[in-house]
Design a protein around this nucleic acid. Structure first.
Ligand SMILES: [Zn+2]
Ligand SMILES: [Zn+2]
Ligand SMILES: [Zn+2]
Ligand SMILES: [Zn+2]
Ligand SMILES: [Zn+2]
Length: 321
DNA sequence: TCCCTGTAGGGAAAAGCCCGGG
DNA sequence: GCCCGGGCTTTTCCCTACAGGG
């Protein structure tokens, strides 16, 4: 296994408010503790290195995790505050063979603490909700610029964290281990594996798993665009496309390149830009093999072959005469 | 100067999935 | 528990502008 980058406990922890923590019974707190230790153990088994923190020590020792004044999961060490002040959004890199790739997750970088390997925690025994939760956060995520970290964390990220505990009694997909809070959500998810799509468009035959997705699709046939920009009046069929458009007015650029810091208003622009760093050129010319990082660049290039073809045809025609 | 390429801004269309409310 | 609407996130393709190099 390749050595992976360091992860600190807070990256994989679930945050509770004091009130939420107070609501938990002792067995539930123990469960939480076990789950988080299992969590760490799993990361170690995946090759991640865990930075030792006060919290992990607390977990090992079975100490109470809420302390008056410092709150939940806050260590008491003297360097703590300065460490927190040094939090940086960094991209960690590691090499796998000759390919270098980036795990773009928000990582809090501690300068004071040496990595500590938890190799003695025992093997991770089974795939669980927690591993899915952890893996969710290990997946490739766009770097969100500091400016927008708060709003992102205020929304889905934190909600996901807080839902972990309630997800303990949840429904798990036996194919991908994803878990859901109720049976119907699981059933709906399972359709993504089976290919079952109950909602079919009677105009074009395209089918969808969710009824709302079919309705959304139907607008492409009717041309209906219910979402209008109040600044310029431009209309869109999906609210998200309107939001995307509105960034051209606001200048909002939530997607930041982890390697050079350049920011973009939309995710796809960041992805496209990232290829200038990686050198990835997914679009190859069928005629000459030349590859391009952008689809449009390939299309443009293909036009130059058309010119050649016309020239060739013309010279053949001239030869015949 | 022309041609070609690299790169980025932004639009259009779309899909997948989650969540809260009824 | 289920359905529905709304919202978030991401993707692909496209047209285009601009800069730089041969
Ligand atoms: Zn699944
Ligand atoms: Zn259709
Ligand atoms: Zn507008
Ligand atoms: Zn960059
Ligand atoms: Zn070619």
């Amino acid at each position: 296994m390749q050595p992976l980058e360091s992860v600190i406990f807070e990256d994989v922890a679930v945050d509770f408010t004091q009130e939420e923590w107070a609501l938990l019974e002792t067995p539930q707190r123990k469960l939480y503790r076990d789950v988080m230790l299992e969590n760490i153990s799993h990361l170690v088994s995946l090759g991640y290195r865990i930075c030792k923190s006060d919290v992990t020590f607390q977990l090992e020792q079975g100490e109470e995790l809420w302390s008056e004044g410092t709150g939940f999961l806050q260590g008491q060490s003297a360097g703590r505050e300065s460490a927190i002040q040094n939090e940086e959004m960094i991209a960690t890199q590691h090499t796998s063979g000759k390919d270098t790739f980036t795990i773009m997750q928000l990582q809090k970088f501690h300068t004071q603490e040496d990595p500590y390997e938890y190799n003695d925690l025992g093997a991770f025994t089974h795939s669980s909700i927690v591993t899915q939760h952890v893996l969710t956060h290990m997946e490739k995520k766009p770097c969100i610029s500091k400016q927008y970290q708060k709003s992102f964390s205020d929304q889905s990220y934190v909600n996901q964290h807080k839902q972990l505990y309630t997800r303990v009694k949840s429904y798990e997909c036996h194919l991908c281990r994803k878990t859901f809070s109720n049976c119907s959500s699981l059933r709906r998810h399972e359709m993504t594996h089976t290919g079952e799509k109950p909602y079919e468009c009677h105009i074009c035959g395209n089918a969808f798993i969710q009824s709302s997705d079919l309705r959304k699709h139907s607008l492409t046939h009717t041309g209906e665009k219910p979402y209008e920009c109040h600044i310029c009046g431009k209309a869109f069929s999906q609210s998200s496309n309107l939001r995307q458009h509105q960034r051209t007015h606001t200048g909002e650029q939530p997607y930041e390149c982890c390697q050079c810091g350049k920011a973009f208003s939309k995710c796809s622009a960041l992805r496209r830009h990232e290829r200038t760093h990686t050198g990835e050129k997914p679009y190859g010319c069928h005629l000459c093999g030349k590859a391009f990082s952008q689809c449009s660049a390939l299309r443009r290039h293909e036009g130059t072959h058309n010119g050649e073809k016309i020239l060739n045809a013309f010279s053949k025609y001239s030869d015949l005469r």
